[in-house]
Every structure is written in structure tokens, then in C-alpha cells.
Computed example of a mutant assay.
Amino acid sequence: MLENKTLPLENTTDCLSTMASVCKVMLETPEYSSRFSSEDTLLFCMRVMVGVIILYDHVHPNGAFNKSSKIDMKGCIKVLKDQPADNVEGLLNALKFTTKHLNDESTPKNIRTMLQ
């Protein structure tokens, strides 16, 4: 008989923050992003990064925007803002409108400002 064992929450949030970090580094490092033969791969990378940030924000008790978050939100937002606006408008809106903790008091002002 199979037992339903759940992973500790920290394993999940560590995995999500690592995925966000890997995507961010792939996007912001010309040496890596230049290896992508298709713009679709860059777009996919951005979507994955935003998706895991949203998941992290919903799963972690303090969210993705908190100072104690393991996700470099400032870096992730900057990477998105450095892309052509028509590629990232929807992704930035997803961060603005589908996250749970963006408007928390614990969210640093500079992060909120970056997303306005």
C-alpha cells in the first residue's frame, strides 16, 4: 500500500527559486542567451521564470517579494525590462496582477515601483 508522503514546503520553494535563478542567469548573460538559436527559446525562458515566481509567491508563506525570499526579484524584473516591451508586457502584468504578496507591507518599495 502506498503512503501519501508530502515533501517539506522548503524543498518546493527551493526548487522554484532555483529555477527562477537559472532562467534569470540564462537571460541576463549574453554568453548563454546568444546560444539560443530561436527567439522562442528566450520567450520560453522568460515565461518559465515568471511562472515559477508566481508559483513561489503563492506557495511560500512570505511570498516572492519579501526581503527573505530566495528569489532575486529586482534582478528578475530588470531582466524582463531589458527585453523588447512587446515581448514582456504580458509577463510584467502577470507579476503585477496574479501574485499574492506584491502589495504586502513587507514588499520593498523599489520592487513595487519597478512593476508600476
Rank of each mutant, 00 (worst) to 15 (best):
S21W: 11
L43T: 13
D72S: 07
N62Y: 12
L7E: 13
D82F: 04
S38W: 03
D40G: 13
S37C: 12
K78N: 12
Q116Y: 08
E3D: 12
D82V: 00
S17M: 03
K109H: 11
C45P: 05
M73V: 09
V88I: 14
N4W: 09
E3C: 06
L43Q: 12
T13I: 09
R47N: 12
L115P: 00
T113G: 00
L7C: 06
N93Q: 14
L91P: 01
I54C: 15
L9P: 00
L43C: 09
L42K: 15
T99H: 03
S37D: 14
V25P: 00
G90W: 07
P84Q: 06
D72I: 00
D104V: 00
H58W: 11
Y32T: 11
F65V: 02
L43M: 10
Y32P: 01
I111V: 09
S38T: 11
S69M: 02
T98A: 07
K78D: 13
R112M: 11
L95Y: 05
S21I: 02
S21R: 13
L2H: 09
L2F: 12
D82A: 14
S17R: 06
P30E: 15
L102K: 08
S37V: 05
L27D: 03
N110E: 15
G75C: 05
K70N: 14
T98E: 14
K81D: 01
K78M: 08
K70C: 09
L80S: 02
P8H: 09
H60S: 15
C23W: 00
N110S: 13
K24Q: 15
G75S: 04
K74T: 11
V52S: 03
D104H: 06
T29G: 02
G90N: 10
P8R: 08
K78A: 11
S21M: 07
T98R: 09
C45I: 01
T13S: 02
S37M: 13
T12V: 15
N62A: 10
F44W: 13
N62F: 08
L9E: 12
G75L: 07
T12C: 10
K74Y: 10
L92R: 04
D86W: 09
A20R: 03
S38I: 08
D14A: 14
L95S: 07
K5R: 15
T99W: 03
L7T: 06
T98N: 10
H101A: 03
V50D: 01
G75R: 06
F65Q: 03
N66D: 15
I111P: 01
H58V: 06
C76M: 04
H58A: 12
I54A: 08
V50Y: 00
L7D: 06
L95I: 05
R112T: 05
C23Y: 02
I71K: 03
M49R: 02
P61W: 04
